[in-house]
Write a protein that binds this DNA or RNA. Sequence first.
DNA 1: GCTAAATCTCTTAGTGACTAAGATATATAT
DNA 2: ATATATATCTTAGTCACTAAGAGATTTAGC
Lengths: 157, 157
Amino acid sequence: MRRSSAQGVLYGQTVANVAGIANSDLECMDILYLEGRVTAGRLAEVTGLTTGAITGVIDRLEKAGLVRRERDEADRRKVFITVVPEAIDKLSQFYVPMQQAMEKVCNGYSDEELRLLLRFANEGYKGVVAATEALKGLLDTPPEKRPALKLKTFRQP
Amino acid sequence: MRRSSAQGVLYGQTVANVAGIANSDLECMDILYLEGRVTAGRLAEVTGLTTGAITGVIDRLEKAGLVRRERDEADRRKVFITVVPEAIDKLSQFYVPMQQAMEKVCNGYSDEELRLLLRFANEGYKGVVAATEALKGLLDTPPEKRPALKLKTFRQP
DNA sequence: GCTAAATCTCTTAGTGACTAAGATATATAT
DNA sequence: ATATATATCTTAGTCACTAAGAGATTTAGC
């Protein structure tokens, strides 16, 4: 899973290259696609970038015609970012190789097995979110007070 | 899986922050850990960075006392990068939250189910590698000649 | 054996995304 | 009505990255 994750990062880098946008710009497009209409601040929160950096991201994405800024009429300080419909078409083609590969892999499993994999994927996601929170908590703990757990490492043959 | 992957990227960013090294420096440490002793050129190849950038990465990692440069005696142009043993201890603590979370998730599965998950993880990894290659191939194909496959998208309820 | 081409890492100059700090505009609380 | 909080943007400066090429070593051709 670690290997897949590392390789997944590389896939994303390649997509960004091919699409001609920066890496974090693509990451934001991904978040926008998954979460829908979000504010600039929410993007900063999720990506871990500063709001200043997000301004730059949105500027570039807007210039590339991939997103639009929309002021919230209820709270005029907020700026909602929405994906331009055509952007999905422009970008989705670069995920075709990945989807084909995954479809091929998934074909090797029964419906019941796929349900198990889906369950694991969901629980795994929640686990990663929890782990990220826990790690951030570690930041506030002085190094000498950190739980010094032995890491069991497994190496595949 | 996409969500997990995106969140995994964030976990890595957080680790890099906490460890006080750059993001790609950590990515290289990961590769070094997985592949063992590798050359500078191999790092460039795997990360997708230029050799010039890798020189910088290794400089910083060496300065931080995490890796060592070793000239290959057989071919003196090559420089092997090796991880300093203590580096593993320094960094592995930051993966404790992730491992705990994953262990917790895995505890919910029988040995047989875990074998299925392992098989999927292996096949999935190969799939991602294949997809990356295919995407790079797309780079050399003119846009109008690209296979315009309909992307089936699934949204979880 | 000697020259030319290839391979591998490093160097240099320039670019661009990032952070920190603060400005601006709007909203909420006392 | 004033102060404080919130949300985004601006600015100056920093740092990792690329492109191009230099330096060092190996391999191939004659």
